[in-house]
Amino acid sequence: MPVTGSCHCGKMSYTLEGDAPTAALACNCSICRRKGYLLHFAPAEQFTAHGDPDATTIYQFNRHNIRHTFCKTCGCAPYGGGTGPDGKAMAAINLRCADDIDLDSLTIHKFDGASL
């Protein structure tokens, strides 16, 4: 069953094909720590963004490996994308913006992005 999610105002949303994640990554880098992301990474071909692309903006920092995508209206960041360690395109979804995901049931893996 696909995973769906959106920003707060609904101007940007997504569908991720496949089973609902059972784990999430909590990174302590400067942006993830401030935004409180709980991330799930998947192959880009499983991800579809919906909505008006003009409603979004992208922020990149440091090595520019991830495109953090934000809603221009409400400021939420439901997804991003980039290149995984294997060199393949990947999608990063913020599970805090996902529909019907029980965050308390997720196994949280901590990632020390602050040390990179």
Rank of each mutant, 00 (worst) to 15 (best):
V3Q: 07
T4Q: 13
G5S: 05
S6K: 15
S6T: 08
C9F: 11
C9P: 07
G10F: 02
G10Y: 09
G10L: 04
G10T: 06
M12E: 08
S13T: 01
T15R: 15
L16F: 09
L16H: 02
E17Q: 15
G18E: 11
D19H: 06
A20M: 08
A20L: 12
A20Q: 11
A20S: 15
P21N: 02
P21V: 00
T22D: 12
T22S: 14
T22K: 14
A24V: 04
L25F: 07
A26P: 00
C27L: 05
N28I: 04
N28A: 03
C29P: 05
I31W: 04
C32L: 03
R33V: 00
R34A: 12
R34S: 12
K35M: 08
G36R: 07
G36Y: 06
G36H: 06
Y37D: 03
L38G: 04
P43L: 11
A44T: 02
A44H: 12
E45A: 14
Q46C: 14
F47R: 06
F47E: 05
F47P: 01
T48C: 12
A49L: 09
A49D: 09
G51T: 05
D52E: 08
D54A: 15
T56L: 09
T56M: 13
T57P: 00
I58P: 03
Y59N: 11
F61K: 11
F61T: 10
N62R: 08
R63G: 08
R63H: 15
H64S: 14
H64F: 11
N65P: 00
N65T: 14
I66R: 02
I66Y: 10
I66A: 13
I66W: 11
R67V: 00
H68I: 10
H68A: 09
H68L: 10
H68R: 01
T69C: 13
T69G: 06
C71D: 07
C71I: 01
K72D: 05
T73K: 12
C74T: 00
G75E: 00
G75P: 08
A77C: 14
P78D: 03
P78L: 02
Y79W: 12
Y79K: 04
G80S: 02
G81V: 00
G84N: 10
G84C: 05
G84W: 02
G87Q: 08
K88W: 00
A89M: 08
M90A: 12
M90G: 04
A91W: 01
A92Q: 02
I93C: 07
I93S: 10
R96A: 07
A98P: 09
D99E: 14
D99T: 03
D99R: 04
I101D: 01
I101A: 03
D102N: 14
D102Y: 03
L103D: 08
S105F: 01
S105L: 02
L106F: 04
L106C: 06
L106R: 02
T107C: 00
I108T: 11
K110I: 02
K110F: 11
F111Q: 08
D112I: 03
A114T: 02
S115P: 06
L116I: 15
